[in-house]
Design a protein around this nucleic acid. Sequence first.
RNA 1: GGAUCUUUGGCAGAGUUGGUCGAAUGCACCGGUCUUGAAAACCGGCGAGGGUCAUACCUCCCAGGGUUCGAAUCCCUGAGGGUCCA
Length: 416
Amino acid sequence: MIDLKQLQKDFDGISKKLMRKGVDEKLLEKVKEKFEELKEAKAAYEKLQAAQNAMSKEFGIYKREGKDISELKARVDANKIKITQALEVQREKQEELETLAMAIPNIPDDDVPDGEDEADNVEIKKVLTPREFSFTPKEHWELAEQNGWIDFERGVKLACSRFSVAYDMGAKLERALINFMLNYNAKKGFTEVSVPHIVNRKALEGTGQLPKFEDDLYKIEGQDLYLIPTAEVPLTNLFQDEILPADKLPFKMTGYTSCYRKEAGAAGRDTRGIIRQHQFHKVELVCITKPEESDIIFDEMVATASEILTALELPHRLVTLCTGDLGFGAAKTVDIEVWLPGQNTYREISSISNTRDFQARRAKIRFKNGKKNELVHTLNGSALAVGRTMVAIMENFQNEDGSIHIPKALEPYMGM
RNA sequence: GGAUCUUUGGCAGAGUUGGUCGAAUGCACCGGUCUUGAAAACCGGCGAGGGUCAUACCUCCCAGGGUUCGAAUCCCUGAGGGUCCA
């Protein structure tokens, strides 16, 4: 949620920034208007309430003194009807405003480049040089099948398409990667947290997945519960509705969960292999910080994710997302793309975002800054997506006969 | 699953014949006096959100609904916790 007071105060400035992200100025004008209407409705309602409270007090006095109350009662009853009406108006305005305002994305940082889509993202740097192959490298799904690591058919049999099963070294590699990543993150000062994979609506609203992206979530039938699309949701919402002591910040957390996504709107994309699954494993980083330190922490998170890839000897590059590719809640995002020789391209393996106070405002996560309560900044990023890391290892470490060797850093984790 | 009790400010804990309770008290915390410094003692301050230049004012005593002119206090529903029974 953007700051509506700020929008009211500096409409031109804010709307200019949001228009870079393709937000319709008319929508913003409407929001501003509704916000003002709500304020008026609130003031009117509160005035009536004040009158009611005052009369109720008189009532007590009248009674004690044995005065006649019939005239007062008539006044009070009349006022009561007005209150009910005023409350109704206020509720309506509130709801209208919320529906509109919740649909507005975060304001992009000034240094986020303009652009339409991922083609306009800006490369920051490349890390490690892709290896030269003396043969034509295969794609991961072919290698996975050949080595007996991943079984696509039986995943479909158990659930539906976009599910798979891992066996033997494939399963082991998955587990090894999770442990390796969690340990690496812990070494960099991120506290390991194990969270529920099912959360309620409020949590998803707090981080911005709802109400806009309901179609992409698995909902538990008959309950106000959803499977998490990312550990970002439970980790960030841990502190929902709390006022944190300033000296405890920043909270730097890491957690491993499965992630569950319907992938609505991704029909036909990445149907081969495990690039895009309904259920996938991910190790996540989430930080809760004071506003002034969020940029530094952001860099730390990017560095950590990149270092993991370097430790795994996987060539990758960092790109800054342009305004058009920026997610709903992010003010700034750096993607890390890993080199896939089989596909002969870089593919996203991590996405690190600073949401500034956008999620904090929705989730009401604040800290005590001296006397005042202030919104924190929340940041999240993958370090890393496990399935895609497996894909990268398979493709980068393949031999001509289709066998795959394991990066040195993982050997202790593979029982080798 | 059944019965019963319980849910208050950072914590502990009053308040349940409905009005003067946003809420006693203790601890913690902050400021001051005293002290070489600290502790103790004493004095003062100390929940949150909205609103205002600042007041005023409004809202919040687990959540939602109801009774009433008026509810932390009464009623209903739900959630969490305790105890007993099965």
